Amino acid sequence: MRVPFSKMHGLGNDFVVLDARETALPAMSAARARALADRRTGVGCDQVILLEPSETCDFRMRIFNADGSEAGACGNASRAVALLHGEPARVETAGGVIALEPRGGGARVDMGTPRFDWEAIPLAYAMDTAAMPVGWGDLAEPLAVNVGNPHVVFFVEDADAVALDALGPEIEHDPLFPERVNVNVAQVRAPDHLALRVWERGAGLTRACGTGACASAVAAIRRKLAASPVTVSLPGGDLVIEWDGGQGPILMTGPASEAFRGEFEWDDFA
């Protein structure tokens, strides 16, 4: 069975997008997602994105990390899918309903409302998520928030100086986070500007993380370190995040690109 795909990226965070909205595909497995994501023997990507029909929205988007695990949301993939779809849409994800609006060479995405309750992150036990009384190495007292995916945000003096390749996996797999967690180190450059690096759950260090940008901007606004809109600079480029600091949705605006299209034999990636 020959299957077409689109290779896309948002600020270097790259995806293999499979469109099964009109022609169904066999069930996606963790092993197949890992095989497709492999950069030596597969197509290569940070996430495999599967588009399917939805009974409640225009379509459904499923997100498989490079390790085969399934994520609830992906901001960069949402912009890429908006570009591919070509018109505004409401999209069902495991993390909730989002709204896409293509804009120029990218999109504006309504990522839904952030959740701060410890059960919603989720954490293994109750604690204050605004300043968690925990630490790993030089990283301490993060803010935790769920923006479709669970995130912890550490504010640091120099984001580039943090050994995130070492601390990231340790924090991701800590028993405090029963569903694992995305790890963000954010540096406040100005009241409307953050520098950010992200260890992404199931993918590792990435050039950009849309939900990480949302989580970090929300954390900065909640701690009164920044005011909306916030430009978040990641290694792959900039995103603009808007949030009213209350019960409103997070709005993310940024670019996306299609790199190429191709096809593969489904059974070659079992």
Rank of each mutant, 00 (worst) to 15 (best):
T206W: 00
A73H: 10
L143A: 13
L167M: 14
G148P: 11
L143V: 04
A144V: 01
F177K: 02
R115G: 06
A217E: 06
T23R: 14
G68M: 01
I121R: 00
V134R: 03
P114L: 01
A140E: 14
P255S: 06
N184G: 15
G112C: 08
A120D: 03
A217F: 02
R201G: 13
F264A: 07
V3M: 08
Q187Y: 15
G148E: 07
V109Q: 13
E242H: 10
A94N: 14
F260Y: 03
G44V: 07
A163R: 13
L11A: 14
G105W: 02
G42N: 09
A80C: 06
L83R: 01
G96N: 09
H193M: 15
D58T: 04
P114G: 10
V3K: 09
H151W: 00
G105M: 07
L36F: 05
A219Q: 01
V109R: 10
T253H: 07
G135V: 10
H173R: 06
V48G: 11
L84A: 02
A256M: 01
S78C: 08
P235M: 03
W118D: 03
S29K: 12
G210Q: 01
E70Y: 02
A107D: 11
C45L: 04
G212Q: 03
E87H: 01
R34K: 10
F154R: 02
G254Y: 08
V43M: 05
L143I: 02
G237W: 01
L123S: 08
N149A: 09
R222E: 00
S54R: 10
V156Q: 11
W136F: 15
C57W: 11
Q47N: 09
A73I: 04
M8D: 09
P102V: 10
G248L: 02
N13W: 03
R222G: 06
R108M: 15
A94H: 11
Q47H: 08
G72F: 01
A31C: 07
F64M: 04
A35S: 09
P26G: 15
F260V: 00
F5W: 08
G237E: 05
A163K: 15
G105F: 04
G10C: 13
N13T: 11
G135I: 07
V156I: 06
I98M: 09
D128W: 05
G248T: 03
G248A: 02
L196N: 14
A33C: 04
R108G: 15
P150D: 04
I121V: 06
T206C: 04
T253N: 09
S216P: 12
V230C: 06
V16G: 12
A130Q: 07
A24F: 15
I121H: 00
A270K: 14
T231D: 06
G237I: 02
C45R: 02
L167F: 13
D38P: 06
H151V: 02
A226E: 03
P133V: 15
A107F: 12
I98N: 11
A107T: 11
A35N: 09
D244N: 07
G75L: 01
F15H: 08
P191Q: 08
E141W: 03
